[in-house]
Design a protein around this nucleic acid. Structure first.
Lengths: 259, 259
DNA sequence: GTGGGGCCTGACGCCGGGTGAGGGTCAACC
DNA sequence: GGTTGACCCTCACCCGGCGTCAGGCCCCAC
């Protein structure tokens, strides 16, 4: 009379090892032992095991299950409430992560048709920092133009990217030359470069009125990681991002957005 | 030149031990060592660490992070997709658990105002199997009358429960007596007992027309755990649940529900 | 030179078991 | 009554992702 570990295992789907484990923990001890030392579980044991499995499913740690079951089930309610809070918290956390993963995937789509070698050819030193790009994506997702820019970027072919990046590289050289030559940030040459950048964005990513352009330049000046996507660190100068920002805003004043 | 573990720890919030761990795993090795053997991390190390933390947040195991980072980021997208599926799956599982927890809490509310001693006094041998009760709650939640019965049960005072359980105990004795005496299940005495049970439910839990009563009796006959809530195992007879079921259905025919 | 902080390596602990190794037990069949 | 194969026992190490000592070196300031 009494079920052996194997039988209990067959009934419940739980492994024999788990029964051993619960026995050594004192969580579920067999009611009896056969002369040969076999564990023998009675109906009470099975009932207790059901309870254990119930709480285990809800994610309770084993020792907490033990206290719930030892305690004459007075305050199971409190434990359940706590678990409920914990579970909903975990759900919220996971949902945030899902969102992050989705944005990361969207970011990763950029240039997805390129082979790794091509990607390296095209993006070169402007390495693709998934960490930051995803964060930025999350930050900017509600800003007008961002979705559109991402969508357009995803459709660029390898040749598009090559042309685009060549233009950008050339523009970078001229920006740095102006900066090094001491051209004033609100002077004509700097403003022309700002305007050129704005048109670059319009052509390749999204229509970019001067006010949007201003916000983008603000981001570049505020966050080095954002600026690094435009000008690789090795090609930067201290103050270059701020210089560009000033030029962009000056250009916006010179060339106000169409009404 | 290069940051020590403590400095990196300060920047990133990660612990020193974790840096050691990642070093021994080969996941993030310091670019250099000081003459004294101190680990020194450069900018490349910090960048890599950022990536690691990004993927770690998403729940990637460390070895998978290693392969993602070693691989020239070709198929990070595949990994992200897999992770996305996994995360959404986890969310769904947790939501099921939350539901279970909610129902368990509702069940546990029954007689919540009673102290453990009172609960024992009142429920006595009809022990409260949270496992089964929660399952039943989930199964029956969309059945009319169930919500109402739970709500009413939650408002019963200790005295209510005492009266209720005494009535039930008395009824159980008479049911068993009829069964033992060989009274036919569709005979008058059995039908009277069925009708008495129906009125008991009406009075204490929810208005219970004969068709609802029939479904309840079906459950008792189909699931021993359900029947155990009405008649404790020690007081049962083989076939008693089926006997009651027949009586209830016979009573429904004799006493059809008001149109 | 000495005190206090930071750094090193090495090793064990945690949770919920999985996965053996090495050996006894049980029922059935030859 | 011996063998086979399925079952059971205990003991003990293994996983991941670190936390947490323990024991000892390094470095700077007083």
């Amino acid at each position: 009379m009494g079920y052996t570990v194997g039988q209990v295992s067959d009934f419940t789907g739980i492994t024999v090892r788990t029964l051993h484990h619960y026995d050594t923990l004192g969580l579920l001890s067999p009611g009896d032992r056969s002369p040969a030392g076999y564990r023998l579980y009675g109906d009470a044991g099975l009932a207790r095991l059901q309870q254990i499995l119930f709480y285990r499913e809800l994610g309770f740690p084993l020792d907490e299950i033990a206290t719930i079951l030892e305690d004459p089930q007075a305050n199971a309610l409190d434990h359940l409430r706590a678990r409920h809070r914990l579970l909903t918290g975990q759900i919220a956390a996971l949902q945030r992560l899902v969102e992050v993963a989705e944005h990361a995937m969207e970011v990763q789509q950029t240039g997805v048709d390129l082979t790794p070698e091509e990607r390296f050819e095209v993006f070169g030193e402007v390495t693709f920092d998934l960490t930051y790009a995803t964060e930025a994506h999350l930050k900017w997702q509600h800003r007008p133009g961002h979705q559109r820019a991402m969508a357009r970027a995803a459709t660029h072919s390898k040749e598009d990217w090559a042309v685009l990046m060549a233009e950008a590289a050339d523009w970078r050289l001229r920006l740095r030359a102006a900066f090094d030559a001491g051209e004033p940030a609100d002077g004509e040459r700097a403003m022309d470069l700002a305007e050129e950048h704005r048109r670059h964005l319009c052509r390749w990513f999204t229509p970019c009125p001067t006010d949007m352009h201003g916000r983008i330049a603000d981001d570049f000046a505020a966050d080095p990681r954002a600026f690094a996507l435009l000008v690789p660190p090795s090609a930067q100068r201290p103050g270059l991002a701020a210089y560009l920002r000033t030029a962009v805003h000056a250009n916006a004043v010179r060339h106000p957005p169409p009404a």
